[in-house]
Design a protein around this nucleic acid. Structure first.
Lengths: 221, 221
DNA sequence: TAATTATTTTAGGTTTGTCTAAAATAATTT
DNA sequence: AAATTATTTTAGACAAACCTAAAATAATTA
């Protein structure tokens, strides 16, 4: 496994995240994701292509090669282990871990990461509920359901938040919703797709479609 | 406190270490320390001068300004806290921590470092026995004595190793000498300046002048 | 002191990663 | 299908950090 620059790693990670939904990723999408310019993206795509990390034909978009995906997963492993460390050991709050982990993730000593993993007790998900790849880049793909699609009165556990902006985290914090929170959907309102949800030992309250769209759960009590 | 690039930080740190002995540092010394070329050093000195981190007149060498010293001490703080973390929590061996800490030290979140400090229980020295600066860059200057200068039969504790090459660490490991090791000097041989030392529950053995020169101790049992 | 040697700086070039402006291609609308 | 609009790529430039080779300065030796 070769070493890649911080910049290269950020591009690889961005493409990995973007291609989860659609299979192929465009220049503009990456430029927007990384707050850079399309011309810079094209430059980097040419470079990553020569390194065989992605497939790329001019004007046709691109997607990671198997090798590229593996690199991406190892970066994500580093990122999520550091997030777990920051939240669990250093008592960072949920919404602060991401930014610091963005920097720590580029320290690429395999031994460091494997020992960190061991020290943390081989956690399976990070503080946002996202699964942590193992040292071979294998990731647990567990069936997540969007809160919008959750049937009424079915107990579920929050396991992931789509958008991770500060605004949404502030709102979730205010409403006492976090990873691991148990809830049921009590009512759905077709008018605006808002829904009423119930959390143990709390009165039911309403959340918007916008918010529900970004909350993902697993079945379970 | 501004942010500096990894490269700038490495130069600042190198100058700080070199000027401990002499007051002023030369271009060649820094080039050698950082395995780079004198021309590159001159470039960087001009840059750091405009940032008011050091005093520099062409051909006259340079030394850090008070501001530059403070920056250096905060980098050293990060380095040594990570070293402590790696050794104490992740069970890295003594001679492996330095290299990884070289990378981690450039992640410059103050909150991260202060919380790490707290998590570690505010350690006062790193695994090499070097003192850890506090969050204001204040450092404890305790009286260290070179093993060469230690009087006979005076109990002392190893607190620092001068040279930190892998070769010396391997040797120290083999002889069971590490930070915190208690010892006494039993005999000194003027012929080659070698000395016989005694470690608790071990037979006395001999070490070379070369080695003794690089071992520093504090008085104490 | 003059000549030689060593050190340091300057001048100009390279690589990485970025940018702007213009050209090429693709997608959309009329 | 042609024209317009949007996207992507190319061309050329820039800053950071490095390099080599040559010039300038300082230190040393004869």
């Amino acid at each position: 496994m070769l070493n890649y620059s911080t910049s290269e790693e950020n591009y690889i990670k961005a493409i990995f995240h973007l291609q989860q939904d659609e299979g192929t990723v465009t220049t503009n999408e990456v430029a927007h994701e990384l707050s850079t310019k399309p011309a810079s993206v094209t430059d980097m795509m040419k470079k990553l292509k020569t390194k065989k990390l992605l497939y790329y034909q001019p004007y046709q978009g691109f997607r990671l090669s198997p090798e590229g995906k593996k690199v991406a997963l190892l970066i994500i492993r580093r990122h999520r282990l550091w997030e777990y460390f920051l939240a669990e050991k250093l008592k960072f709050s949920w919404d602060e871990v991401h930014e610091v982990a963005e920097h720590l993730e580029h320290v690429s000593s395999k031994k460091l990461i494997d020992k960190l993993d061991e020290f943390l007790g081989f956690p399976r998900v990070d503080p946002h509920g996202d699964p942590i790849p193992d040292e071979n880049g294998k990731i647990e793909t567990s069936p997540q359901v969007c809160l919008l699609d959750l049937p009424l009165n079915k107990p579920a556990i929050v396991c992931h938040v789509g958008d991770q902006s500060n605004q949404i985290l502030e709102l979730l914090n205010h409403k006492n919703i976090g990873i691991g929170t148990r809830m049921e959907v009590k009512k759905k309102f077709d008018f605006d797709n808002s829904m009423e949800i119930k959390i143990r030992q709390q009165l039911p309250f309403t959340i918007s479609e916008q918010l529900a769209k970004n909350i993902f759960v697993r079945y379970g009590t």
